[in-house]
Design a protein around this nucleic acid. Structure first.
Lengths: 146, 146
DNA sequence: CCGATTTATATAGCATGCAATGTATTCCAG
DNA sequence: CTGGAATACATTGCATGCTATATAAATCGG
């Protein structure tokens, strides 16, 4: 079997992810946001407060990565942190008012890019696509634990 | 419609790509290689020589990204460059002997991770999955040109 | 209650990716 | 043949992601 570009799932997944990120970033850049901010925006919607660890788990990224993202978002005035009154190791993060006001636009950009990417696929195909992505994530995630 | 994590194609694609890269990197690290080297290894197999621009196109990444990757690969003794005799602006890259000797192991790692990721999917599903990734790439790529 | 372990965050160092820009050649129209 | 446009590469600056490691606080067994 010949593995080139188009029949390597890993390569295609990488390519797809980069195109998604670029499409999102182009739309969010005017708002001072980027694709990495989206999981945080969603997790902290409706005024929720979460620790860095909880945010990292929600975004499925490593803790130092989330620390850096939160640091940049704080610098940009998008999130604020306060000490967790119940755990002096932890910090609780929440969206600032400016960030909350941008949530709608972030939502719209997510929907727009999602729809653009999946155009030409029937609803059942979209479901199947997401299910297969979920299966691949489960397969690779399970293999990491070993 | 509620967009969270599991029903956002962009988020799932990003997650999938990161898991693929980690699985590949874990296997290639003992060889002194990484996932970003794979498109170069494949493009330059069988002693082929290619310019930096041709390699960037083959890998579907931007030129500065390929420049950095080739620079690291050169530092690691994996590729060598020589001036293009027909174009004094261009350089021709090829794999070194040590890199050629690692090509088989790279191939094996790619097949292993591909199979692990797609385990549980029937051959027809795998084909459909790759076809849908191709469709998403085409959709997002076409939108970039605008 | 105490020491060992676990947990939450911080930090360093690096790879991979992008956009924007500079420089040297090449190519093409006139 | 020449000047402007296009092309190939280099460089800068930054974001996103990882691993490995350090530090402080919480937790748990005895």
């Amino acid at each position: 079997m010949r593995i080139g570009r188009d029949n390597s799932a890993g390569y295609m997944a990488n390519w797809t992810a980069r195109l998604f990120a670029r499409a999102i970033d182009r739309r969010l850049k005017p708002l001072g946001l980027s694709s990495a901010h989206m999981p945080v925006m969603f997790a902290l919607r409706d005024g929720a407060e979460m620790s860095q660890k909880a945010l990292a788990q929600a975004a499925a990224i490593e803790q130092p990565t989330m620390a850096a993202t939160l640091s940049r978002m704080e610098r940009a005035g998008l999130v604020q942190r306060r000490p967790d009154p119940d755990d002096r190791r932890a910090m609780l993060f929440s969206l600032t008012r400016p960030a909350r006001e941008k949530a709608g636009a972030v939502w719209a950009a997510a929907l727009e890019v999602n729809d653009l990417a999946l155009s030409g696929l029937a609803p059942a195909e979209r479901d199947a696509f997401l299910a297969m992505l979920g299966r691949v994530v489960a397969n690779l995630g399970a293999a990491e634990t070993d």
